[in-house]
């Protein structure tokens, strides 16, 4: 079973700061990590390989520093890595990113499954998984919390829902995104770390993956960020104080006044 994992390098913080003039993330001085959801994707790919054999390839698009994320993937046990890095990719929105990744996947060639994280902790859109699947013309299932079985050319998975879960059967190849409930990521191995240390990551350019320059980077991005701002706090709240009994009585009174009970 050949698996491709989509890995994004993100700033290690849940409170990203934004440059007011350029409307972009301030990354200076913030250490980079593999997007936490992608760690679950890598782990699941490694477990599938341990069960079914085959090969796991980690794919990322990013600046040259993103090679560090790929090295970390190797230290965890990934067999092969691909870095898409080219000025032409810069400034991409989710659409242009998905296009570049789908071209990278086509270039890698033979695969049975693509696994991505549910969302990235910096961008938070959850769009790249489904868009990439669409561009590849393969089935897509989001929010996978368990892979029940893989047999011949089909796979049965559990998709997490607000209440309960769906059991979904799909043909392969397909693309899934995973949630944190799916597994507990491993720590690297010493052999993996040593392999990662001596690894030279070579980047693929837009030309290497036969991408149409007009669909890449800023040029290929239909999204335009007009303004970024923190949402205004919702007003109209009232804080109650006093003993629990008093507060309950006050709530009951209000609800009665508004004929809600």
């Amino acid at each position: 079973m050949n698996i491709i994992v989509l890995v994004k390098q993100v700033p290690d913080t849940s409170e990203v700061k934004i440059n007011r003039e350029t409307n972009t993330l301030i990354r200076d001085g913030v250490p980079s990590i593999i997007n936490p959801f992608d760690m679950f994707a890598i782990e699941e790919a490694l477990r599938l390989r341990e069960k079914h054999g085959g090969k796991v390839t980690a794919l990322t698009m990013g600046p040259p520093q993103a090679a560090e994320a790929l090295k970390e993937a190797v230290s965890l046990g990934v067999d092969d890595v691909v870095l898409l890095s080219d000025r032409a990719f810069a400034g991409a929105d989710t659409w242009a990113t998905s296009y570049a990744l789908s071209m990278g996947i086509r270039k890698i060639g033979q695969y049975d499954l693509v696994i991505a994280g549910k969302q990235a902790i910096d961008g938070d859109t959850a769009q790249v998984g489904p868009e990439t699947a669409d561009m590849l013309g393969i089935p897509f299932i989001a929010y996978i919390r368990k892979i029940e079985k893989v047999e011949n050319d089909t796979m049965v998975v559990e998709r997490m829902m607000d209440e309960g879960y769906d059991v979904v059967e799909t043909s392969l190849p397909c693309l899934i995104t995973v949630v944190k409930e799916i597994n507990q990521p491993r720590v690297p191995s010493l052999k993996g770390k040593m392999k990662a240390k001596s690894l030279k990551v070579t980047a693929w350019s837009a030309k290497d993956v036969n991408a149409d320059e007009n669909k890449l980077g800023l040029k290929g991005s239909p999204t335009q960020v007009v303004r970024i701002f923190p949402p205004a706090p919702r007003g109209g709240r009232e804080m109650l104080s006093g003993s629990v009994a008093d507060q309950v009585a006050a709530v009951a009174k209000k609800l009665k006044e508004q004929s809600l009970i």
Partner: peptide
């Protein structure tokens, strides 16, 4: 050595996370 630092970091990660 570099390898010893690697071993230290790895063991530390297991200690902290697991």
């Amino acid at each position: 050595t570099e390898e010893q630092l690697m071993i230290r970091d790895l063991a530390r990660q297991i200690a902290v996370e697991k």
